[in-house]
Design a protein around this nucleic acid. Structure first.
Lengths: 244, 244
DNA sequence: TCTTCTTCGAGAGCGGTGCTCTCGTCTGAG
DNA sequence: CTCAGACGAGAGCACCGCTCTCGAAGAAGA
């Protein structure tokens, strides 16, 4: 669905001059689109501008991407992968037993990438692009970050750490039923309090970065690092277990 | 900046046929734009489509709104006001002494309006529109919701309720300094733990609604009401004080 | 080597967009 | 009653996504 057609069968790396040229141009188009996305936002991405940038007629770009939406899909996959990789790397650099440390690393990597690529972040976690529906091929890369977070939850559950706060009422059976899909996705039978704690932390993280990046803290919060540090600590779902 | 010019001085309601017609058409354009926004998203809003809808030549619309961005600004103000009013009404319908109840009402009203107006919500809290910079006149309406939340924090601070969790480390001096703008905005000298608790709850709320509305819970969470109920309770910054 | 099939790039073109300018018309104030 | 100002329509400009056609160039078979 990304490229229109492929001369060689999938897996067999053709080295013909034509295939090489095709590969090169596909990459150039994607890179140019990515660069344009960095300055102008997904909704304003222009196939014609990309074509001008790589030195092609606008119609020629359609030999490589069937439509603007296809180009958007490729960008979506690239950004999700890059973002996921950054978060994974940060999580893996921390002692696996230190859940709070892993959480903090994940949160800061999440925000760090977003600050470096604000429009890419908007493509991933901002408003949907009006006419565009993300195809199935994007859900894999899209879930890399959530997979990292779920890894934290699975480890917490395996260690038997309760993530509910002392006074927090247990989520009811409706919540348990609602989370069937997520439990299946995690591949582990996570307790409800763990799932809820994880989702709340995830919401707070996305919300915090979104508020900052989309300008909702502009006249309210000065030092953004201090703000995010404090937010991360406050959201840390594993923090209660450290003291108690 | 909204309308191009006004025949009558501001405040004096002119009843001349021309002024009436102008008022009527301005409203019709805004209503049509709002309706179009409801189906297609801010980035795809088309002045020409609005013109067709209200039965005008596209050029005539520019007699009423100087540009597409001006129309967007008017929509932004209208949506912020509507959203703020919904949240305010929900908060005012609860016993003022019941902080957790007010929080829950605010959160559910926030989400309720967002679910009813997904694209309007995207305009308010989603990605920035590429070429568009929100003018100063939007910040007033934009802060209505946050004002309600800050009212909660001010009341909590006045009641001397500590909002930090038992094991939570106090935010440092850098955080205190970062929140100068917000304290000035609140008009009260809120303690750091109260500010942090409020911002974290605010982040979680925006993040939760954003995740749900922008499709990030699609294959993970079934019953959305159950999920949001549980999230709201988990995020409730006043909950610890109830039990302790 | 010659031929045939496919791929590719360019250009023209269609209907859409935001926006500007001009040109008649009509209104309201002096 | 007159005349400046407001107004609507239309043409036009530069841009957009996308399609179609056509000629050049590469790949593959005879």
């Amino acid at each position: 669905m990304g490229t229109v057609t492929t001369t060689s069968a999938p897996g067999t790396a053709s080295t013909s001059a034509r295939a090489l040229a095709r590969d090169h141009l596909t990459r150039a188009i994607l890179a140019s689109a990515r660069a344009q996305l960095g300055t102008v936002g997904p909704a304003a991405l222009s196939v014609r501008a990309v074509a001008r940038d790589v030195g092609l007629a606008s119609s020629a770009v359609y030999r490589y991407f069937a439509s603007r939406d296809d180009l958007l899909t490729a960008l979506l996959v690239a950004c999700f992968d890059e973002h996921g990789e950054a978060v994974e790397a940060a999580a893996d650099a921390v002692d696996p037993a230190d859940l709070s440390g892993r959480w903090s690393a994940v949160a800061h990597a999440f925000r760090g990438w977003a600050l470096e690529h604000p429009w890419d972040y908007a493509l991933l976690y901002g408003s949907p692009v009006p006419g565009y529906e993300a195809p199935a091929q994007t859900v894999g890369p899209a879930t890399r970050v959530t997979r990292v977070l779920m890894g934290l939850l699975v480890d917490a559950a395996a260690a038997g750490v309760p993530l509910a706060r002392p006074d927090e009422p247990a989520p009811g059976p409706a919540f348990h039923a609602a989370m069937t899909g997520l439990r299946g996705f995690a591949g582990a039978d996570l307790p409800d309090d763990v799932v809820l704690a994880g989702l709340a932390a995830w919401s707070g993280l996305v919300g915090g970065v979104t508020l900052e990046l989309f300008g909702h803290l502009d006249n309210a919060v000065g030092d953004r690092e201090a703000w995010f540090d404090a937010l991360t600590r406050r959201l840390d779902p594993f923090s209660p277990s450290r003291a108690g």
